[in-house]
Structures are given as C-alpha cells and as structure tokens.
Write a protein that binds this DNA or RNA. Structure first.
Lengths: 198, 198
DNA sequence: CAAGAAAATCGACCGAAAGTCGAAAAAATG
DNA sequence: CATTTTTTCGACTTTCGGTCGATTTTCTTG
C-alpha cells in the first residue's frame, strides 16, 4: 500500500523528464520501464495506458505550476505585472524544453495541446480574480472576464508556442489585444514587450 | 505516366474521406489499400509515408477551399460579411465531419493542427485584401493587418474547434474582439452572432 | 513488331511499439 | 504459519508503418 505509491510517483517523475526532453510520442513504454528498471507488467499495473500516464504527468505538472501562480496572487506587484507573472508561471522553464521541443515539433502536438487546454482551464479562475480587482481599481473596464481571458490565453499559446516564429509586430499587436480586451488604457501593457524575447 | 497520376489521385480521394470520417490516426494504411484494392508496395510507390499522404490530402483540401474563398473577393457583399464568408469557406462543411470528429476528439489533433496552421497561412493574404479595402472605406481603422488577422483566426480556431463547447458569451466576446482588433465601430460585426450556432 | 527500358504492382517480411496475461514473488494480515 | 492481497515479472500477441526484391504492365524505339 505504501510501496505502490512510491513506485507510481517514481514512474511519473521519470516519464515527466522523458516526455519533456524527448517528447511524448518519441518515448516508448519500453524505454520508460528500462529507465525505471521494472517489467512491462509492473508498468501496466500502475497505468492502464500510456496515454493515462501522460494525463497524470500533465496533472502533476500543472498542479505545481498552479501553486506557484497562486502565490503571486498576494504579491505586491502592480496588477498588470501580476497578470503576466501568473501567465509566465505556466510556461515551461528554459531548461525544461531546450533540446526536446526544438526537434519534436509536430510529434508532440498531442501533449502540447493537452497541456495548453488544461493550463487555460486552470489559469482562468486565477487570472479572473486579478482582473476583477483591476476593474475595481479602474485599471480595466470590461465584462465577461473569463471569456476574455480565454481569448487572450488562446492567442498567447497559439502565437508564442514553440516552433512558431513570431515577430516584433506580433508582440505589438498582442499587447494591443490585451489592452483592448480588458479595456485598459493604451500603454498599460506596454511593459510586456520587454518580457517577450523574439 | 498517365495511369500513375490517376492512381495517386484516387488514393488521395479515398484517404481524404477516410481521414475525415474516421480520423487520421484511426485510419491505417492497410485499410486504405484495402479500400483502394491495391498492395502495400503500390501505396508506398506513390507516397513515401502515411504522413506525406496526410500532407497532400490537406494540400488538396485547402487548395479547393482557397478557390472558393477567392471567388468571394469579387462578390458584392458588404466588407464585414465578405470577411466572414471567406472565413466560413475554410470551415469543414456539415456532412464532412458529423460522425468522425465527435468521436475522434483527441486522436485527430495532429491532423487538426496541421489543417489549422495551413488554413491560417492561406487565408491571411486573402482577408488582408478585404480588410485593406475596409480601411480605405473607413469601416476599419488599424495597422499590422496580417498580425491582427492571425490573432482573429487563432481565436476562431481555438474557440470554435469541434469538441469544444462554447457559449453565447464566447461569441459576444469574439465579436468584440474582431471589432476592436480591426478598429471597427461597435456593432459592425454584430451580424456574426446570427451566423454561429452554439 | 520485337525487345529492351521504364513504370507500376505485388505481397511476404521486418521491426517497433502498445498492451495482455497467467504465474510467481513479496508483503500484509490474523 | 497459513492465507490473502499486492506487486512484479516477462514472454507473448497484435497492430501498424514501412521495406524490398521479384514480377507484371506499359511505353519506347530501332
């Protein structure tokens, strides 16, 4: 009862690393069990399929990031900066993708898409709180906050996903999008341009 | 020299239908060759891989849709309607997806993503012409037209993709997005709400 | 038209990968 | 200690994309 939990966690860790560096499609169950030093049957004792493993890996991943993001709710940054900080908390850190994603462009789409969707659903309620506060303060002016956030996040993922080269103009328009969608004064989000390297 | 062309076209047609109804991942090469009544080797004489077949199927598909879309450039509709008509030309028609996509939600992601990206790249220059004209006429007011269009299209795909349930509010905000991004007067795109069933 | 070249077709075979299963070992239980 | 439950094992199966050398069909041309 205790040992099983540990084993499963260990498998999640190993898979997490391998999925991130080599991609989901390019990592076979055989490789995972070899890395873990266990037999095929043991793996399928803990996960009913490779895809369920992916699901759980993503769940674990996002849970961590969500905690990071929620910490920022109570930081003392200005609201616009807070929003971007929360969004950044859900972006893979530098070292986590370097080698992997560059190569695994299209093979990793399933994983990417699953992550993106889950991130969006997780992050919206958090950001909504902040935007709500921004509306109170008069920085923003808008209704339908969750729907507006969803749009911003979809664009953020679609535009700045790896293996997608974006230009300075893309960033300019992205900033404009945020301001317009949230009803902020022009320039409110200007600082974002410094955040994104292109 | 002639026969080969016909065979290849026939394979493209068969694959097109099967990919659409059963999904790319759920259609095996064996099933395709069985439907076509040919041997494995013959298939690989025409396509170097299953993925290349997909690529060509998508290419064929979008080429047709592009022609449809370009026809509308010279129609006499008002500019806002023209924009939506062009966008609609690139959406799968009703009967093409019914059964298939409902089931193949996640398995078809690769195909979907490839289609979406190709559609966006194909459609932007066409729409840009129309928006440009709209700016001349004073209906719209914006710079960076291609970048703005890309954002609108990313949202359109991300929001209204199959297996994604959207609400009335989503549509409201989507309309607002288009108006704001293109610098149109409020209400210019109101008619879109009647176009999208939710 | 005959004969050789080129194009098209065939299908057995291969290797990789996900997933199954019954049996055995290890751990918990009482 | 006996028995029940949990965990582990690994050979085996199936599916699938892809290869390859042999064979047939079609085209070319002297």
């Amino acid at each position: 009862m205790k040992k099983g939990e540990r084993r499963k966690f260990e498998l999640l860790q190993i898979a997490y690393k391998m999925f991130l560096t080599r991609g989901y499609e390019n990592t076979s169950v055989d490789e995972i069990i070899e890395a873990a030093g266990i037999a095929k049957g043991t793996f399928y004792y803990y996960f009913k399929s490779k895809e369920q493993l992916l699901e759980e890996v993503i769940g674990m991943m996002i849970e961590e990031e969500e905690q990071q993001a929620r910490l920022m709710l109570h930081s003392d940054q200005p609201i616009p900066q807070k929003i971007m900080a929360i969004m950044a908390a859900f972006r893979p850190t530098q070292d986590e993708q370097t080698i992997g994603d560059a190569l695994n462009q299209f093979e990793n789409i399933l994983m990417h898409e699953k992550i993106n969707r889950k991130i969006i659903d997780t992050i919206i309620p958090i950001l909504a709180e902040v935007v709500e506060a921004g509306v109170q303060e008069g920085i923003f002016c808008c209704d339908h906050i969750p729907e507006r956030l969803r749009i911003i996040l979809i664009v953020s993922n679609g535009l700045f996903d790896e293996h997608s080269h974006y230009s300075k103009d893309d960033i300019t328009v992205f900033v404009d999008l945020i301001e317009k969608m949230l009803g902020a004064k022009k320039g409110t989000m200007e600082f974002v341009k410094e955040l994104i390297r292109y």
